[in-house]
Simulated assay, not measured.
Amino acid sequence: MSDRTRVLVADDQTLVRSGIRLILEAHSDLEVVGEANDGVEAVQLTRDQQPHVVLMDIQMPRLDGIAAIARICASPGDAPHILVLTTFDQDDHLYDAARAGATGFLLKTAPPEQLVAAVRATAAGETLLAPSITRRLLDEFTRRPPGGGIPREVSTLTDREREVLVLVARGLSNSEIAGELVVSEGTVKSHLNRILAKLGVRDRVQAVVLAYESGLVRPGDA
């Protein structure tokens, strides 16, 4: 069916892939179009199957998930949305995955209904950056050198757009930002759309990376 969300699952554990397939294909709007057991297969199957969403593990043989994400996002045409499957206590490469082009992150311990909701949200263009994942990303930012100055793209933002970007980088949701600024959630979404366009980035995660790399926001800011 043309209206089904096409999903590719990339994980080196067969049981994990099989379990995800069973969970997703129990829903008529989701279809698993391929399974990859390493990064090389993930890149090739993405080209062949043209999924809307790729569920990507980071630690895989031959080519790891970060390198696979970078290759997928660098390929001609529209790249799929990439949802990284992460083990909170083990993965130390969330920053690199975000920088490579990951759209969002999902804990491997998430319950089935959260996995389904995450795939649907990612396919709809929403970014999944849970507070726990945001904190982990910030931990990685603190171990990296500060940015080398605010790039021209950031300087084109209005004061309000910068304010919104800072709040996004601190992990606030759209509804939380709306409450903080005393505006509607629709207004926040409009600001975000303009921010992404001005920065030349594809999603919220990329905007957060740029905000920290440029030094506009620094770990530990209140």
Score class of each variant (00 low, 15 high):
Ala123Tyr: 02
Arg62Thr: 13
Leu107Ala: 14
Asp78Trp: 00
Ala118His: 01
Gly179Met: 10
Arg144Cys: 09
Thr187Trp: 10
Gly65Cys: 06
Val188His: 01
Arg120Leu: 06
Thr109Tyr: 08
Asp57Leu: 05
Val119Glu: 02
Leu83Met: 06
Leu128Gly: 01
Asp78Val: 11
Ser184Met: 06
Val54Tyr: 05
Asp91Ser: 04
Ser175His: 05
Leu83Phe: 03
Ala98Thr: 04
Ala124Tyr: 09
Pro131Ala: 09
His191Asn: 10
Ile177Leu: 12
Thr109Glu: 14
Phe141Val: 14
Ser75Gln: 14
Val84Leu: 00
Ala118Gly: 04
Arg136Met: 14
Pro61Gln: 03
His93Thr: 05
Ala70Asp: 11
Val54Thr: 03
Cys73Arg: 15
Asn174Pro: 12
Ser175Thr: 11
Ser175Cys: 00
Glu153Ala: 15
Ile58Leu: 15
Ile150Gln: 12
Thr134Glu: 14
Pro146Gly: 11
Leu172Thr: 04
Leu137Gly: 00
Asn193Pro: 00
Ala117Val: 05
Ser173Gly: 01
Thr187Asp: 02
Leu167Glu: 07
Glu161Trp: 08
Val182Tyr: 12
Gly65Ile: 08
Glu163Tyr: 02
Ile133Ala: 04
Pro112Thr: 09
Lys108Tyr: 04
Arg194Lys: 11
Gly171Asn: 08
Val168Ser: 05
Gly65His: 07
Ile133Ser: 03
Ala123Asn: 05
Gly147Trp: 01
Asp96Gly: 06
Leu115Met: 06
Ala118Tyr: 02
Asn174Gly: 13
